[in-house]
Amino acid sequence: MAEALVLLTEVFLVAVGLLLVTLVWRRVALGRGERRVREAERRVRPVAIALVEGEGGETTGLSAREQAVLADVLGRYARKLTGDADARIGAYFHDAHALRSALRELHARRMWRRATAAYRLGDMCCPDEATQPLLAALDDSRREVRAAAARSLGRLRVVSAALPIVEALVQRRVPNGIAGQALLELGTDARPELGRIAGHEDPSVRATAITLLGLVGDSGDSHIAGAALRDPSADVRRAAAEALGRIGTFSDEGALRAALDDRMHFVRAEAAATLGVIDAPEALPRLVEIARTDRFRPARAAARAVARIDPKLLTSVAAAPDAGPHLHEAADLLAV
C-alpha cells in the first residue's frame, strides 16, 4: 500500500510538472503565433488594399503563410466593403489556393472544419465555384455547418438559394436569425420566392416570409401582407401588420383598422403601430379608445400612433381625467 501511494504521489508530481511545461509552451507558442500573424498582416495589408482598390497588388512574392493571412484580410474586406471591392476580391480568390482549400474542407470529417470552410466561402466572392457545394452543405448533418452555408449563400447573393434556405428555415434546420439574415442579403431578388412562400401551409413559414417581405419588399408587396392580415394564424397576422409598417404605405387602411379589433393583443399592438406609420387619421377614434382601455402593449402602441398622426389631438385627449397612463406617457414624450 505504501509503495502504491508513493508511486501515486510521484505520478501526480510528474503530471503537475507536465502541466506546467505544457502551459508555458502553449502560451509561448500562442503568443509567437499571434505576433507572426500580426506582422504578416502588417506586411500584407497594403497588398490587400491595393488589390481591393483596383490598383494592382503584387501577390506572387508572398510566402504560404502570407497568402493565408492575405486570404483572411481579403475576407474581412469583403465583409466590410461594398461596390467594386467584391468583384476584385473574387478575381483574386478565383485562382487562389484558399478557395480550393475551402472547397475541399467542405468534406472534412470534423464539423468545425466544414463549418469554417462554409463560412469562409461566403467572403471569397466566387459564387460560381461556391454555389453548388454550399447548397449541398445546407443538407449537412450538423447545424453549425448548415448555418454557415446559409449565411455564405446570402453573402454571395445566390438567388437560387432562396428556396432552399427558406425550406431549411421552415424545417428548423437553420436558425431563424441566420436564415432570415441570409434571405435579407439576397434582397429584392428573393422577393418572388418569398411571395410564393407567403402561402405555405405551415404558419411559421408564412410568418417568416411576410416578415422578410416587410424588410426587403416595397409597396408592390403590400397586397400580400394585406391579405395576410386575415390569416387564420395570429402570428401571421402580426407579421403582416408589422411588415406593412416597414413597407410604409398601404392602400387598404380598412383592413388595418379591422385588425385593431383582432382577438390577440399583439396583433392589435402591431396594427396600431403601423397605422401610426402610414398616417391614418380615420383610425384615430379607435386608437384613442385602445390607448385608454386596452392591455399594455396595444394601448401603448396606440398612444404612440396617435402621437404620430395628430399630436394636437393627443395633447387634448391626454388632458382628460380618464386618459390612462399610455396617453399620458405619449403626451409627455411629445413635449420632450
Binding site: W112, A115, A118, Y119, G177, I178, G180
Partner: peptide, 15 residues
C-alpha cells in the same frame, strides 16, 4: 466556433 460565427453580422442584423 469563433471562426465560423463572428459577431459583426449579429450587430448588423434586424433579427
Amino acid at each position: 466556433a469563433r471562426q465560423y460565427s463572428p459577431l459583426d453580422e449579429l450587430f448588423a442584423s434586424p433579427f
